[in-house]
Design a protein around this nucleic acid. Structure first.
Length: 420
RNA sequence: GGAGAGGUGGCCGAGCUGGCUUAAGGCGUACGCCUGCUAAGCGUAUGAGGGUCAAAAGCUCUCCGAGGGUUCGAAUCCCUCCCUCUCCGCCA
């Protein structure tokens, strides 16, 4: 959510952001409602002040045994007007709040305007492996080594719910362990194991609601949502709080499964592990002081990139164009690794600075060095999504005899196994 | 699922037979005074958000779990919901 004052004073900037992000939000209507609400608020406050004053007088009269029927009669009228103004004010405010939730965050100045084709290449590391034999894709490899059972997953739940089996499960777990250990010990994050079901307020706080309602699994009987990313519970962890300065920065990391309905994307990349209804991810979240968030994002990019380097996977880093930015994001970098099987780059991490956009929605504030209360900045980034790393590893590390080498950093987590 | 108790300011905690409560009192915190030092003591201050204002001050509105209602007036009465605790039941 943007600051209403900011919208009032920089309407053009906001309009441009809405257009660049391809969102729909009626800024003129917001401005009109804001104006109307402030007028109404003024009328209400003035009358309410009168009411408070006279009510006190009535109390005094009664206490002294004096007659207050004159006052009572006139107050009866005022009370009616106050009630009327109050409900009109509530209507304006509800509508204003609803609209404010539909206005996206402003992209950073260096974010390219445009769609996916306009994403800016920031850096590259390593070179995609060349093969002197015809490499198999991860589907074939997973089947050959019984790493993932897609058919039985479909039997249990439907497509998009893979079952990791045997060494596949071991590899998946090793990836998670390796990533968590690295972020905890090398990067200083605190591990969190959060709930996988969260309420409407939490989903609204990080910005999934109202826009992404159709993409999430919703438990109607309890009005809870399955998390599409652990960003939601991690970032909402401190919602409604005013943190002491000493508590910043906060750095949280969590491993969770994630659930996405992927409504409307049937037929698009549905084979294998690349697009799933349930997938695993290690997620990093930071809360910082406003002046520290840009630097924090750079660090998080490096932390995610470190994992891919350790795994020996060629990657590239992109700065997403406005059309590819999420609703709440100010700036987002994607890390993509090369998939020899798919012959294309796969997004394994998406790292974003939200500035105070989410913090304002969920009310995460802190007391700064001047003792003033201000919104924190929130950031998050995958560190990483195993469902994309997994195929990249089995494809990249395959040998001509069909076996798969285990990357060295994972071996300690796989009972010393060197080959699958 | 059933029965009961409760949710008040950073914390504890009174108020809850509706009106000098603009929420007592305490703890904590900050500043000052006092005192060889420390402790104690004394004094003052100490929530968030909005409106008005160039800004500050000031004035004012809202907030006592959330949302409705009754009333001239609600922390206080009524209704719905959420959460916590205790007991019972059911169950992985």
């Amino acid at each position: 959510m943007l600051d209403l004052k900011f919208i009032r004073e920089h309407a053009d900037v906001v309009r441009k952001a809405v257009a660049d992000k391809g969102e729909n939000a009626d800024i003129d209507r917001v401005l009109g409602l804001d104006e109307a609400k402030r007028h109404k608020q003024h009328d209400f406050d003035t009358l309410r002040a009168d009411q408070n004053r006279v009510s006190k007088g009535i109390g005094l009269c009664k206490k002294n045994g004096q007659d207050a029927s004159n006052l009572l009669a006139s107050m009866k009228k005022i009370a009616g007007t106050v009630r009327q103004l109050g409900s009109q004010l509530a209507v304006l405010d509800t509508e204003l709040q609803r609209l404010l939730l539909t206005i996206p965050n402003i992209p950073r100045k260096d974010v390219p305007v445009g769609g996916e084709a306009d994403n800016a290449l920031v850096s590259e590391w390593g070179t995609p492996r060349e093969f002197d034999f015809t490499p198999q894709d991860h589907l074939a490899l997973c089947e050959a080594h019984r790493l993932v059972d897609f058919a039985r997953g479909a039997k249990l739940s439907g497509t998009g719910f893979p079952v990791y089996t045997g060494n596949g499960a071991l590899l998946e777990r090793a990836l998670v362990q390796f990533m968590l250990d690295t972020h905890i010990t090398r990067h200083g994050y605190t591990e969190i194991i959060p709930p996988l079901l969260v309420n409407t307020a939490a989903m609204t706080g990080t910005g999934q609601l109202p826009k992404m309602a159709d993409d999430m699994y919703h438990i109607a009987s309890d009005d809870l949502y399955l998390i599409p990313t652990s960003e939601v519970p991690l970032t909402n962890f401190h919602s409604g709080e005013i943190l002491p300065l000493d508590d910043l920065p906060r750095k949280y990391v969590a491993f969770t499964p994630n659930f996405r309905r992927e409504a409307g994307s049937y037929g698009k990349m549905t084979k294998g592990l690349l697009r799933l209804h349930q997938f695993n991810k290690v997620e990093m979240v930071r809360l910082t002081e406003p002046q520290d968030s840009s630097q924090a994002l750079e660090e998080m990019i490096e932390e995610a990139a470190f994992i891919t380097r350790q795994l020996g996977l060629a990657y590239r880093i992109l700065r997403l164009a406005t059309g590819d930015l999420s609703f709440a994001s100010h700036v987002t970098y994607d890390i993509e690794v090369w998939s020899p099987g798919a012959g294309r780059w796969l997004e394994v991490s998406s790292l974003s600075d939200f500035r105070d956009f989410q913090a304002r929605r969920m009310g995460i504030r802190y007391r700064n060095s001047e003792g003033k209360v201000a919104f924190v900045h929130t950031l998050n980034g995958s560190g990483l999504a195993t469902s994309r790393i997994f195929p990249a590893i089995v494809e990249t590390y395959q040998r001509d005899d069909g076996t798969i080498e285990v990357p060295e950093v994972l071996r300690p987590y796989m009972r010393g196994l060197t080959t699958l």
